[in-house]
Amino acid sequence: MAELLVQQLVNWITLGCIYALLAIGFSLIFGVLNVIHFSHGDVAMTAPFIALALVQGSMAVVGVTGPAWLLLAVVVAVLAVGVIGIALDKIVIRRFRDAPAMMALVATVALGIVIRELIRHLYPQGSNPHAFPRLVSGMAFEVAGVSVSWFALLVVAITAILVTLLFVFLRMTALGLRIRAASEDRVVARMMGIRDSRVFRATFFIASAIGAIAGLLFASYAGVTRFDFGVMAGLLGFSAAVIGGLGSMPGAILGGLIIAGIEVLAQTFVPDGASYRLVFVFLLVIAVLIFRPAGLLGRTVMEKV
């Protein structure tokens, strides 16, 4: 029993970190643009495909392969997805930032369809699942008879580093200050001489790059990636951001851990829980929002008349 518990604890933290990274992207973009970027999950899940393509490309051109090439491919993929995020904002999402919220939601859902279909057509045999390597392999140490993998440690370390960096960036740099100002009040921020196009560019780059890291970790965790993984990744990341409270970074992390927690709990303790896990996740989402309508750590905004 203890072994099972520790094992599930490790799974929970790994998965929770990945969801938290996805949720941070949703929260960041919503905070600044007031737009739900529903295709964020799909953007994130392009990263594993870009990395795979790069690895295979380098193998075909240079003829060598190895962990160093994989690492390089991963870094390039993360940067590329950041740029893709900026491009999507420029071409599509920006036009909906003043439109009714539902319009932006529907537009980004359609954008998600386009991204998925593009992956399916551009990547060779894109309709099939593709194996994705573990970024690091091997077992790090043993706790109560359960060996903890280097991969789990890597996920936790990356999440901790990213969250710290993001925190420092938002609190201590000028650009971070501008982003926070724009997310508080875009109009006033503009009046203070903050050019919002720069803020949007920075926000989308950061959110998409963090999403790409989450996507790579997710593909690596599952060992496989497929063009339509973005739907569920997006839905779960969005749910995590919302139950944590949109616009709140600690909320996004908390939300990710909660969503992953209920998923792991359902799989472990409920008979046939694996097939019902989404039911439990979304029932929890409903319950949280009934009792905390603005999310767990969200600010309840008093409406002024």
Partner: peptide, 10 residues
Amino acid sequence: TYLALVTIAF
């Protein structure tokens, strides 16, 4: 948005 998520969840 929160209501949208509730209906998505349902």
